[in-house]
Amino acid sequence: MKLYVIKIGGNVIDNSENLHQFLKDFAALEGLKILVHGGGKVATQISSAMGIEAKLVDGRRITDIETLRVVTMVYAGLINKNLVAQLQRYGNNAIGLTGADGNFIRAKKRPVKTIDYGFVGDLDKHSVRAESIGRLLDASFTPVFCALTHDGEGQMLNTNADTIAAAVAVALAKIYETTLIYCFEKKGVLQDIDDEDSLISEIDPERYEQLKLKKIVSEGMLPKLDNAFDAIKSGVKEVIIGQADELHLLGKKSAFGTTLRN
């Protein structure tokens, strides 16, 4: 049976018009599906309003206890429940979750090396309880996971949404024919970053090496593509990177995004 694991970033969440269209298209997708979402600018705005200064090191957020309280409220509450309510509006029986709910995703607090990232969770191959999530899918629910996990000792942890999506897809690939989809602001991987019409429709590992050698793939895209090919090596059928407002093209004759395959 086919399963889509779809991750949306903050750029989609922050644009209400794009978000409503995306959720409508997501709800219309046939078959089993899971949505994973990040936080967008809302957590930063609310932190600022509460007088909590965002701490960043090399562009990465430090999650101290005050920040963790805010992201728990915003990710698991405000954003997650609004997404679920919109999906119900479009006839999709969604259920909003953190990794702590049902013990679905258990992480380990990132160890302190040169930088203390605070309450940030790292995942391993045993983190995701695939059979438990499978029971929700088989009962016709659509899980909607926010970017929060737990450590099994009562501690919530802030966890990268891309990482959660990949880990969930890999774990569920043992049960379902799984496609992982990253939706972001570009149409996919572009031959020319400034030309939206220069979409590369398909990349295999050999082509990926060529694109890296020619420096066609930008630095910001490298971690996403590396993680995508790791997911494929671990059993995910394919990974698609595409634009959120083109999700309706998935499975149609028109190309949707860049497909990564072995």
Rank of each mutant, 00 (worst) to 15 (best):
240 I>N: 09
40 G>L: 10
177 E>V: 02
193 I>H: 13
202 E>D: 12
214 K>Q: 15
253 K>S: 13
107 A>V: 01
26 F>W: 05
42 V>N: 10
41 K>L: 14
174 K>Y: 06
72 T>D: 00
74 V>D: 08
143 P>T: 13
247 L>D: 02
74 V>W: 07
111 P>D: 13
132 S>E: 08
49 A>W: 01
244 A>N: 13
195 D>R: 06
48 S>W: 00
54 A>Y: 00
50 M>Y: 12
216 I>D: 05
137 L>H: 06
26 F>S: 03
187 K>Y: 08
78 L>A: 09
215 K>H: 13
230 D>I: 04
150 H>D: 15
127 S>A: 14
225 L>P: 01
97 L>Y: 03
28 A>V: 03
127 S>D: 02
247 L>H: 08
82 N>I: 07
67 T>A: 09
27 A>N: 01
43 A>D: 11
122 D>R: 06
86 Q>T: 13
231 A>T: 05
129 R>Y: 08
203 I>L: 03
14 D>K: 04
54 A>S: 15
222 L>I: 14
115 I>K: 08
146 C>M: 12
150 H>L: 00
234 S>Q: 11
40 G>R: 11
122 D>L: 08
60 R>E: 12
32 L>K: 14
158 N>R: 05
190 L>G: 06
206 E>M: 10
214 K>H: 12
111 P>S: 15
51 G>Q: 06
49 A>H: 08
58 D>S: 15
120 V>F: 02
50 M>E: 04
60 R>N: 09
124 D>C: 14
159 T>V: 07
7 K>D: 03
192 D>P: 00
65 I>T: 13
26 F>I: 05
246 E>K: 12
200 I>G: 03
114 T>Y: 01
